[in-house]
Design a protein around this nucleic acid. Structure first.
Lengths: 109, 109
DNA sequence: TCGATGTATGAATATGTGTTCACATGTTTT
DNA sequence: AAAACATGTGAACACATATTCATACATCGA
């Protein structure tokens, strides 16, 4: 299937999305390109921390940066990332129909 | 966009996929349903650890369990998860064409 | 060219959290 | 009872996050 290297790289991407604050930065960008200042305002984090997060997301190509004057706008880079996110959001809000018959064990009661 | 609760739930799913060993269990299941024993063999992990991981993935509905005789087979539960994974795999193997013009900064040197 | 604004980066730390192992026990099916 | 799998607990270990501060870089307007 996947080489060990590819698995690591893929896991790395998911790990980046696995932190609420970082994920929120990405989902905000689903609406359209947003400046760092705007992301800082919406997230309530410090500008420094936002920048640190964006740097990681950029390196993993989960976000794309584009400068416009003094500001830098971040956006979803391509349809793969966009569709991946919308798929996961749909999966989340989806009715949990008989999720697991085996042993009645749920994440949330 | 998303409520704080939804963001947490979504991040939780990504976090589960953000560990190489767990992700490998999931990607193996892309080929088709696999028994715990088979997954243990392929992953090289202990059966106990595999079971722990599968439990988490099941609870998040990233995998679905089905018993067949003595064995339990795990599979991708629906098309959302399957498409999400294939999208991410495509994104990963995609040519990194001008990933980030802003500051020449790469993930791997 | 200087100052203001917007953004990036580096370093250092404290803290938290998850992964993994090892062992034991429980459950379901043959 | 045996085989296959699930679950629980606790300890060791590694890593990542948040945080702050300081500094550097980029762009624009005066």
């Amino acid at each position: 299937m996947l080489t060990a290297d590819q698995s690591n790289q893929l896991a790395e991407m998911f790990r980046l999305l696995g932190e609420t604050s970082r994920l929120t930065l990405v989902t905000h960008c689903l609406e359209g390109p947003l400046s760092v200042g705007e992301l800082t305002r919406r997230s309530g984090l410090s500008q420094s921390l936002v920048s640190h997060h964006l740097r990681l997301l950029r390196a993993a190509r989960l976000l794309r940066a584009e400068r416009s004057g003094k500001q830098v706008f971040y956006a979803i880079p391509d349809c793969h990332v966009r569709e991946m996110l919308t798929n996961m959001i749909e999966h989340m809000v989806e009715p949990r129909g008989a999720a697991n018959e085996l042993m009645s064990e749920e994440a949330e009661p």
